[in-house]
């Protein structure tokens, strides 16, 4: 059992092109802020927020990565231990959408095969400048078997939902894993040691 005061611990890594609003999403969620004129992230930033999901204390460790190419080898090293990836693009920037397949290749190459990936189209407050239609993004995410959500870090639209839904899915995934693991011995390359034991009884 963990000594710390939480039932679950998950690592979430945000990835995507530079300037799509990853840092703003994280800031909005963890601090309730929207800092205008946010500078480019250097390397990776690290935030923690503990949320309550149906009475369970869930500690979310959020790694906000730099989108710029020169930090790629740093950010890639975080993929493997991630329980979830939030792949972000900017709905007002066609280029950031067109880069998604490249990001998916990175995920394929570096992340664990059990990772949950969410596609996020950010900046819906700039609707008049939209370049990527919701339908297109939905079709794409469906083809890639990803959960899709459109957000606005500025207006705080869907930001809370994004992280809380993700936490819920991570919990149910973790419980399933425990059920499997209880039968067989622990699999190699398994994520963090989390105290699942208390949780199985509830399901």
């Amino acid at each position: 059992m963990s000594m710390e005061d939480y039932d679950f611990l998950f690592k979430i890594v945000l990835i995507g092109n530079a300037g799509v609003g990853k840092t703003c999403l994280v800031r909005r969620f963890t601090q309730g802020l929207f800092p205008p004129g946010q500078g480019a992230t250097i390397g990776v930033d690290f935030m923690i927020k503990t949320v309550d999901i149906n009475g369970e204390k869930v500690k979310l460790q959020i790694w906000d990565t730099a989108g710029q190419e020169r930090f790629r080898s740093i950010t890639q090293s975080y993929y493997r231990s991630a329980n979830a990836l939030i792949l972000t693009y900017d709905i007002t920037c066609e280029e950031s959408f067109r880069c998604l397949p490249e990001w998916l290749r990175e995920i394929e190459q570096y992340a664990s095969n059990k990772v949950i990936t969410v596609l996020v189209g950010n900046k819906i407050d700039l609707a008049e400048k939209r370049e990527v239609s919701q339908q297109r993004a939905e079709e794409f995410s469906e083809a890639q078997n990803m959960y899709y959500l459109e957000t606005s870090a500025k207006e705080s639209d869907n930001v809370e939902k994004l992280f809380l839904d993700l936490a819920c899915r991570l919990i149910s995934e973790a419980r399933q894993n425990t059920l499997v693991n209880n039968v067989a011995s622990p699999l190699p390359g398994e994520g963090k040691s989390i105290s699942y034991l208390t949780c199985c009884n509830l399901n």
Partner: peptide, 26 residues
Amino acid sequence: SSIDCLCAMINHSTTLLESDFREVLC
């Protein structure tokens, strides 16, 4: 002296030990 560089190499080492090297012994 770069913290991000250090963390990246710690991560890579963890991966190496956890998957590949452990696999060898396994």
